[in-house]
């Protein structure tokens, strides 16, 4: 489902003497449907960078990244947008939304973008918000004013609203209490069970052990960091 072949990335800092920083080189691995793979490595090893490359958020200089057959390194923006809408979900560490939009609509939006009627999308959003213990009185409010943990849960609800065949999870259990952590882990298990290919970053070793089938140490691909 997700396949990386000889993937490399450099940053060129034009405004700092055109310094070229090599961050990832020659990554190759694949994730099958129903499989969950953890990216590991020390902070700064490039886990989030690699994940952003897979999402198309960072430009990849060399290699292939195939998701459901589409090589996103060589795709038109509109194909990547379609991929993100239909196939590839991403739960980042930070919630980025239009201010003043109600939480319920924020969560329902990925479904609305797919053309799901407003009522059905909101039903699904309500169910997820309930599951993640966001009190109903907060639903009509914008999540921009919520606490960090609440924002994280809204972000997760949004990420799981649509049943994506491929998912990227960046620290999904960080800053969650035990009960909510349990909900998130079960959401991941459900996604795996329905056949989603998942790549995740988990600092939480117990969580990682529970949902991940394999681990990939990203430091191996980081020039200058390999042991």
């Amino acid at each position: 489902m997700i396949e990386l072949k000889d993937v490399s990335k450099t940053f060129t800092l034009h405004n700092q003497g055109s310094a070229v920083i090599e961050v990832i080189s020659n990554v190759s691995f694949a994730v099958a449907p129903g499989e969950c793979v953890a990216l590991t490595g020390a902070s700064g090893a490039g886990k989030s960078t690699l994940m952003r490359m897979i999402y198309g958020n960072y430009l990849t200089q060399a290699g292939e990244i195939r998701i459901g057959g589409l090589d996103i390194v060589r795709s038109e923006p509109r194909d990547i947008i379609k991929l993100r809408r239909d196939v590839l979900g991403y739960v980042s560490q930070f919630l980025r939304v239009v201010p003043r939009v109600p939480t319920l609509d924020v969560v329902a939006e990925p479904l609305r973008a797919l053309g799901v009627p407003a009522g059905d999308a909101q039903d699904r959003a309500s169910a997820l918000l309930t599951q993640l213990n966001i009190p109903e009185r907060l639903w009509p409010l914008s999540p921009t004013t919520f606490s960090g943990g609440e924002q994280q849960r809204v972000n997760i609800a949004r990420g799981f609203a649509h049943t994506y065949p491929a998912m990227l999870l960046d620290e999904p259990t960080a800053s969650l209490d035990a009960a909510n952590r349990e909900v998130v882990l079960s959401l991941i298990e459900d996604a795996k069970a329905r056949g989603a290919a998942i790549i995740g970053i988990f600092h939480d070793a117990a969580a990682r052990a529970r949902v991940c089938d394999r681990e990939i140490d990203v430091s191996r691909f980081t020039p200058g960091m390999a042991a």
Binding site: F11, T12, R52, G56, N57, Y58, L59, P77, I80, I81
Partner: peptide
């Protein structure tokens, strides 16, 4: 390019600035 890609990983000197 993709909006978030250009904003988060700008390639050209002017975009970076």
């Amino acid at each position: 390019g993709l909006t978030d890609q250009v904003l988060d990983d700008p390639q050209h000197a002017y975009s970076q600035l």
